[in-house]
Amino acid sequence: MNAHTHDRRSFLRGTGRTVLACGCAVGGLALPLASAHAAQTCTAQTAASQKALSPQDALTYLKEGNARFAAGKPMVCNPTPQVAATATGQHPFAAVVSCIDSRAPANLIFDQSIGDVFEPRIAGNFVNDDMIGSLEFACAAAGAKVLMVVGHTECGAVKGACDDVVLGNLTQTLANIKPAVAAVQGFDSDRTSANAAFVQAVAEKNVELTLARIRQRSSILAGLEKKGDLIITGAMYDVGTGKVAFAA
């Protein structure tokens, strides 16, 4: 077993890969969903619907949404009513930290609507104090029930960190991913972006270290998780298949 295989199995341990029943719209018909909720329909989130969600419900909705997206059966919603319904307030059920990559917009890959998901994005999906502060707002102040860090395959920022790219302010951005590069063992024959297995291992390790950084630097978020009011977890998105591998 090579280092990449070991890291990937560790990252995916406990991954929920079962395709769950969805409340998506197919052919104009709304399919039934047990404990139907605004997150699975074209109805905007409300304070009441958000409060009724458990953290596990919120995670399930992200899993169901990605199953719809990957299967090519997303909800078909007119966003205009959602804009009007959220004009005076928002009640998202999730906060998703992801990369700025144009192929990985969280609302689309999880098939959610306006008002459902906070989407802090940065090249390499890492967090700094400003990002963590934003997540504290999203979860502690605005009520999101799941905080997910999503890395992705073929990540340009990860490749740049592997290759020690130097380019203006990007140099400092990539420095935030260097701990993941250093933490991945093995691959001694090729630790560059030319080695796809190494890049994938670094991307997965970067998600792992980002989750640890969130828990270490935010007693607020760690406290919500400890109380059972928030799930903090990670995932990897495959830009080639549209599927998300969930760590929990």
Results as ranks from 00 to 15, higher is better:
G124F: 02
N195M: 06
A157S: 06
A138Q: 04
G16H: 06
A38K: 03
F93T: 12
N107F: 06
C22N: 15
D238Q: 02
G28D: 06
A248Y: 05
A104W: 03
T43P: 03
V207E: 04
V166H: 01
T41G: 09
L170H: 03
I231D: 01
R13N: 14
L147F: 00
I114G: 05
F110R: 06
K73T: 14
G160F: 00
R217Y: 07
A94Y: 05
A52Q: 07
P105F: 08
A87P: 13
G72H: 07
Q45F: 00
V184Y: 08
G242T: 07
S189K: 13
F198C: 07
T171K: 04
A34D: 12
S219C: 13
A25I: 11
V96G: 13
L12E: 08
N176Q: 14
A183D: 15
A183E: 11
A222E: 07
L108Q: 07
T173R: 04
V181N: 13
E225M: 03
T41I: 04
L174N: 14
A140Q: 05
F198Y: 08
A47C: 05
G160M: 00
I214Y: 01
A161L: 04
T171G: 10
G228M: 09
S49M: 05
T60D: 12
A194S: 15
P179S: 15
A194E: 13
P179K: 12
V166N: 03
D129V: 02
H91E: 14
F137R: 02
N78T: 14
L211W: 01
A138D: 10
P179V: 14
N2I: 09
N169S: 10
F110G: 09
G23W: 01
D229C: 06
A196W: 04
C99H: 12
L147D: 03
L211Q: 01
D238W: 00
R215P: 09
V97P: 13
R9N: 15
Y237T: 04
